[in-house]
Design a protein around this nucleic acid. Sequence first.
DNA 1: AGCGACATTCAAAGCGCTTTCAAATATGTA
DNA 2: TACATATTTGAAAGCGCTTTGAATGTCGCT
Lengths: 341, 341
Amino acid sequence: MNLKQLSELLGLSQTTVSRALNGYPEVNEATRERVLQAVKETGYRPNKAAQRLATGKAGSIGLVMPTAPGHQSDVHFGEFLAGLGEEAVRHDFHFVIMPADPDDEVGALRRLAISGNVDAMFVAYMRGHDPRLAMLKSLSMPYVVHGRSFGSEPDYPYLDIDNEAAFYDATRLLLQLGHTRFALMNGPMHLDFAIRRKNGVISALAERGLVLDEGSMSHTLMTDEQGLLAMEHFLQLPERPTAILCSSTVLALGAIRAVNQAGLRLGEDISLIAHDDVLPLLKPENFSVPLTTTRSSLRAAGVRIAQRLIGTVKQAGPFPDQELWKTELIVRASTGPVPQV
Amino acid sequence: MNLKQLSELLGLSQTTVSRALNGYPEVNEATRERVLQAVKETGYRPNKAAQRLATGKAGSIGLVMPTAPGHQSDVHFGEFLAGLGEEAVRHDFHFVIMPADPDDEVGALRRLAISGNVDAMFVAYMRGHDPRLAMLKSLSMPYVVHGRSFGSEPDYPYLDIDNEAAFYDATRLLLQLGHTRFALMNGPMHLDFAIRRKNGVISALAERGLVLDEGSMSHTLMTDEQGLLAMEHFLQLPERPTAILCSSTVLALGAIRAVNQAGLRLGEDISLIAHDDVLPLLKPENFSVPLTTTRSSLRAAGVRIAQRLIGTVKQAGPFPDQELWKTELIVRASTGPVPQV
DNA sequence: AGCGACATTCAAAGCGCTTTCAAATATGTA
DNA sequence: TACATATTTGAAAGCGCTTTGAATGTCGCT
């Protein structure tokens, strides 16, 4: 069943039927009723490809999902996607996921844009000096960046959390508790958030004349396995750290296992603050020693980005171009005063 | 830049250019070279919507992602998606995700199919007597079901793991170790895999004249929080179980925390076998007491389903309609002989 | 030279929709 | 009653691609 058949059935022109369907004002209410009724009876649905071709709009937002045989799927990605989806479904948008080799994200992004399958795009996993920015700017397609790109002029639309402030504040809390030996378990070094979090820690320490040396920092994928390994390493340092900052609750999971295995008590021998993306999988309050965290919902970010993207496509704007969300510092039991030696 | 412009540039007809691009044999090799060269220089990319409209094929597979404000994102979903993506990227396919209210999956599926945006579909989270099957059959679009639907005639294309056998075998192992008091931590009751796993346990127990009563079964979302709660409940039963079967390593995570909190030793006071979907996030061998598991890679299933779907669309078939994968039973330290009382 | 066979190329007809521009009808006003 | 103004409807022209069916040019042979 297509428009032509439907309009013949109704004895109307395609024009009128199309207008009736798309809510144009110049069609008689009685006629519109008839059309809508017929749609119900026949189950007619407009062909999206044709609509797309005719209008240039597709009702979809695109994103690149890094993937490869060895590439690990990421919990954080799924959670963010859920947020995007929650908003998209309200507007009858869908998203097109272009899987891509992590080495070819720029290319994948371009292909996705040019494919004509999407009206707007979203990018994440930003790196320092990210080459995708130039590509996006050249594209004349709406986009929003999740995160920022350290070292690039911040003249692009983004939504980010204030990673530096989050880790600065967290570090200060630990300093106030008397800690002086710190370690940082971070995400992959090239990623923007990792750079900023590290800077936050370093500048808070610097205020007390402390430095964070290379050996007290780990940059790894954010899995529990890596968390375990990194913590085991820290625990064997001659000057064992008493304060740990951790970029994810997933990392913390492994880290805490290492702490327990070493017979140390979390919140007493070792204090730990983790960043909490509010993953339903892993709630910091349910850890055997509830975790002190810096919190910001990844899912909420997904919802907001979808809002901005869809709003822009529908020209329901304007939207702020750049948003920087504060995180919350929530104190639970995994932090305590520095132990007396 | 579109086909028309490109062909004018080359002094050829659109027909010839189109053929050159799509590998038709009747075009002069020299001409093809020229065309390909021009494509490189101009950066021309065919408009997918137009291709779709003309051919009816879109190079994409569709799936419905259940989502809602309260709906929890699922690690398992992301992992499966990674598998799909890994294969899709090899064939320049993308996927279209239709977010949908979990209550309206049938409708979402239909809308996705009719939208004309996808060539094939995939469905998961199958339930007993799943209403989506009838809808899919009526659709004349290729599809593959991940899992099966208990109670429905198995006359649809699926890929599933042998959940019943997996849990049957796991239960038998525990029986051989002398256990007689069992509990099952399962996924949501309406889901097919949960039904079959339960049946596997029940039939293995029945062979020894044992039964699994309602109080020794939990049906919950598969998060660590729920795992913790369920295990706490089991530990308070008058006849405390010594053998636990667990539908996910994520559930196991919480369960083990409860075991530790109760001061019990895993693999000695309590034996536990979990099903392992091979999530990179959570490796059973890295648990403080390595976990005995039934294993089957969710990601591999994603790859295989993408293969079948894409192959069918490209008519590169035929593919087996129904595949049932065996799981592996891997014994580690979380299982041991029943403790002497 | 003449003819069929083959290799290339092209014009034009869709695919199913939106939208411009024009036409037809209805309504109001002097 | 005549005419200007709304109100509704329609015909037809795209959107950018694929594909059918026809045309042209080449070759090898008789």
